[in-house]
Design a binder for these strands. Structure first.
Lengths: 196, 196, 196, 196
DNA sequence: GTGTAATCGAGACGGTACGTCCCGTCTTAGG
DNA sequence: CCTAAGACGGGACGTACCGTCTCGATTACAC
């Protein structure tokens, strides 16, 4: 019906997309990113490599989509709270997602792959990081406008000061990401930023 | 002579160790971590896979050693300056190393590999992170003792608040790591930490 | 259609079988059995090791099949002649084949390999020797029935008395296999076997 | 002391020659020719590869010498009997040696190797076959001179007619080499050769 | 109904890197 | 000079995945 959309031939089985992404996430969680093979995903999803490659050009693309499909419902920007409480809520929600679902291991695998796959790196930045950074920057702008915080700080650097430590511990694993860590990070960063 | 060291048989050619590590670093810089093959390293180093596998069990181990051999001379903890200046000097030196030598691409590759190689992850934490974190934590303790900073902050969280954003940008590449970024990160973190 | 034959998936490229076997024979003739590598066969046949290993488990199996495919058309049991003339014709045909085609060097390589590969030894006995020995034994039985020869000789020993010297010279190379040798061998063996 | 013989330095350990050959034979019997490695021989003989390569240029040479050292004491040409009895005694002694000692498997391995090693093939012909063929040919000449057999047969072809079937069964293994087989082979070959 | 055409599962394809094994040589310390 | 130990360069092995391809069967819409 849509202009430019072919409607002849056997229609694509839309349930397969979800099945493939679910299989991919499950296998990443079970074996780790690099150990997941396309054959295994096809088998797990009860489909074929043909069907997968018709939808995505490579492994990284499948898993990127699968990750976002699982992660995105998480985004429900908290509103109406002071900046500190809002940012702690956001960081806590992210941490919970990464630690209690296959999402954490998946994101780690994607970031790893992105070190040698610039297209994937672009995708992660544009589809995952940028939206979250924009939300956080907007929250900071609101807080400043409300007279809550000083406004002379580059918002990108501020957001990275908040989230950078979290990703650092996620990827290096040298220390736990718990509530105390989140609270202390936020308080340290915001400590000198009170207006006046 | 050395206790526990056998001296029978043809001794290892120690120059080969260096040649192999140099070849590995060169190739990582040239092609990226995952595109480096053991055969290519052997050829570049004018040696054989046999000789490489006799020394290291896998690619990650070679490159870990090669990275540390190149990076470690960098560690010359600055002394005698106020905490802020010292930490900025350290972070700047690290950034220069990562951006002007093969070290940056190498470390990114190692951290990527560590996402699915726990032995490598341990090695990175113990041999690369831990020493630098210990130095920074000691510097913080000195600064507190000198009455320069408040002391009620967990030093681990503080160090991660300083270095986390740097690694975040190194691995995600969403924004540059320049002097302004370093200075702003340090100032943001230390903003509320002045003693009294 | 064929009972027990699955027809799902991309079908095997039957021309590859022939191309691989031809490449194998050509290389055995060119370099000798042990110097032939799977990589070389794959390259010569413009295919991949994968495709070869899908068809045969090891080098010996490829070359056994290739040898038989080339040698078998040779079997056209002569009929209607006296035993002596028939057996000389057969032995001459075999000798010509072994000396004027890659077949000779190939068979020598196969028999060599069979000394440490019992599966190949079985294959040579069952697929190459047994049929030829059966034909020769049948010819002997006919000759005896026709009153041409005595029948008190074990046919296996008789056949080996005829062919054994030929294989001996093929494998040890201590003397030529020419028409005089064949004729003399046959006459020596049959000398005392005339009926009455 | 001997002119032209250097006597400086540590003297060669002559017992090693025998130990190495014994180890080689034992391993050939245990694992088969191709599965024997030089490292294994060195270990079995409680010596080193260096010592082995100082004595022999390659694996085949070691095993050739080892085989001859074990086999040669066997040669004690029977005398004083009629040709038929003598040749049966010789063939029986050879068969016993090949079937009850590591010699059989060793000779099979050597002949196999000789298919792609012309130097070894020469060695087998000159050091193993030729002496035995010369003895048999001499015996045949004696028998003819004694009026026992006709003399119009090429002695090389005759010897191969006798031994060829034996080697054929040794290398192909399609039928046993027992006394009946030997007797029948000899009788078939000699059947038409009685003088007059 | 009957084409027409895209999708499906299955699996073969060429290619590349892996990590292991053995060869025959070389290099040391020590006898 | 010889021995034991073991490192050396080289080369083939057989395996595993990649991303592509080819096939018969299936499933819809358009005529």
């Amino acid at each position: 019906m849509n202009a430019g959309t072919r409607a002849v031939g056997r229609p694509r089985d839309d349930t397969l997309d979800a099945a493939i992404m679910a299989a991919a996430l499950h296998l990443v969680d079970e074996r780790g990113y690099t150990a997941v093979t396309l054959d295994a995903i096809a088998e797990q999803a009860c489909t074929s490599k043909t069907a997968i490659y018709r939808r995505w050009p490579k492994k990284a693309a499948i898993i990127m989509d699968a990750f976002l499909a699982e992660a995105e419902p998480l985004i429900q920007p908290v509103t109406g709270l002071p900046f500190r409480d809002t940012i702690i809520a956001q960081m806590t929600a992210l941490t919970d997602f990464l630690q209690t679902t296959p999402g954490g291991r998946t994101l780690r695998g994607l970031i790893a792959e992105a070190q040698t796959d610039t297209a994937l790196a672009d995708a992660i930045r544009e589809r995952w990081l940028a939206p979250r950074r924009a939300v956080a920057a907007a929250m900071y702008a609101d807080a400043h406008e409300a007279g809550e915080l000083r406004g002379d700080i580059d918002s990108g650097a501020l957001v990275d000061a908040l989230y950078g430590p979290l990703y650092f511990r996620l990827l290096l694993g040298h220390a736990p990401i718990d509530h105390a860590f989140i609270a202390q990070t936020v308080d340290t960063v915001l400590g000198g930023m009170k207006a006046h």
